[in-house]
Amino acid sequence: MRSILKLLILITKDFSIFSSPGLRHIRWWLYRQYYNAERLYVDTRVTITKAHTNQSSLLQMGEDVRIGKDVYIDFSGGLTISDHVSISEGTKIYTHNHNIHDGHKNWQKNGITFSSLQIEKYCWISANAIILPSVTEIGEGAVIAAGAILTKNAEPYCIYAGNPAKKIGKRRVNEDQQ
């Protein structure tokens, strides 16, 4: 059954016809079944893959996760996306890196370093942001600004922007409202 779902996802992910109001529900249903995630909304041309396999190559998604167009998600090192997370258009998330200091001149012969990533509840990763494998946690409610390149962990309810991304502020939230 999983292989059939995966094939159907591959068929529907790149066709814009499945973005029309009536047919996008089919794509959403396929992703929800495949990833066992309630209220998962995945737009077109999204790639969710483990570029390299290891023991930690697991992906867990919470409820009400929204993934925009042209997003690339690598979960080679393991990735957990908690509830109410938005990942906007063009975002790239990496959980592995090729070692360049392992002795070979040809970096492709060197080993791979894997790192797991936890994206906590209520995070928003804005358009075209890049999350590098040095990041292991994006704290609850954090916002990663459009075009930011995140190289370090993000604190809860903080806003990060730039290249490399730096904390530029803290969100004002009412804890009583969800």
Rank of each mutant, 00 (worst) to 15 (best):
Y94L: 07
V135T: 12
A142C: 07
L30N: 06
V173P: 06
R27P: 02
E120V: 02
D70A: 06
L7D: 13
E63Y: 09
A148Y: 11
Q178G: 05
K109V: 05
Y72F: 15
L8M: 13
S134N: 13
N110M: 04
I67H: 00
Q60G: 10
I4Y: 09
G22S: 07
T113P: 00
L59R: 04
A37N: 03
P21S: 09
Y160F: 04
S116H: 05
Y122E: 12
I93Y: 11
Y160G: 01
N128A: 09
L150W: 11
K167N: 15
A145K: 13
I26A: 02
A148N: 10
I17N: 13
Q60E: 15
N153A: 03
H98F: 05
N128W: 06
H84N: 15
A148W: 09
S57F: 14
D83V: 02
I73G: 04
A165H: 10
V173R: 08
H101R: 06
Q178A: 10
N36A: 10
C158R: 03
K109F: 14
L30H: 08
Y31N: 02
K92Q: 11
L10R: 14
Y94D: 03
A161T: 06
G147Q: 07
I4H: 05
L150N: 11
I144D: 10
I130F: 04
Y41E: 05
I87V: 10
T12H: 04
S134A: 14
G139E: 13
G62S: 08
I9A: 04
Q177W: 14
N106L: 09
K121H: 06
V42M: 01
A146Q: 12
S82A: 14
A148I: 03
G111K: 05
Y41M: 01
I26K: 02
E140S: 11
S86L: 07
L117V: 13
K6L: 12
Q60D: 13
Y94H: 11
V46Y: 00
I125K: 01
G111H: 12
Y157F: 09
I144N: 08
L7H: 12
Q177D: 15
L23Q: 04
C123G: 08
M1F: 14
N128E: 15
E137V: 01
A145Y: 10
H101V: 08
T91K: 03
P21W: 05
T91R: 01
T12W: 00
I144W: 05
V135L: 10
T49M: 01
T47K: 02
W29R: 05
V135W: 06
I149M: 15
L58M: 09
D43C: 06
Y35A: 01
L23F: 12
Q33Y: 08
V71Y: 02
Y160C: 04
K170I: 14
I138V: 13
V135Y: 09
N99P: 00
L58I: 08
L7G: 14
L40W: 07
T47S: 03
N163H: 08
Y157C: 06
I144F: 04
L59D: 10
G62E: 03
E140T: 15
G22H: 03
Y122S: 04
L8E: 07
I17P: 11
S3T: 07
L5W: 15
R171Y: 12
T113M: 02
N99V: 11
R27Q: 14
Y122F: 10
E89S: 07
A37Y: 02
N36H: 11
T49A: 11
E89C: 01
Q178S: 11
T53C: 04
I149H: 14
G78L: 01
D64M: 01
V71L: 03
Q108Y: 10
D14W: 00
Q108D: 12
W124Y: 13
S82I: 00
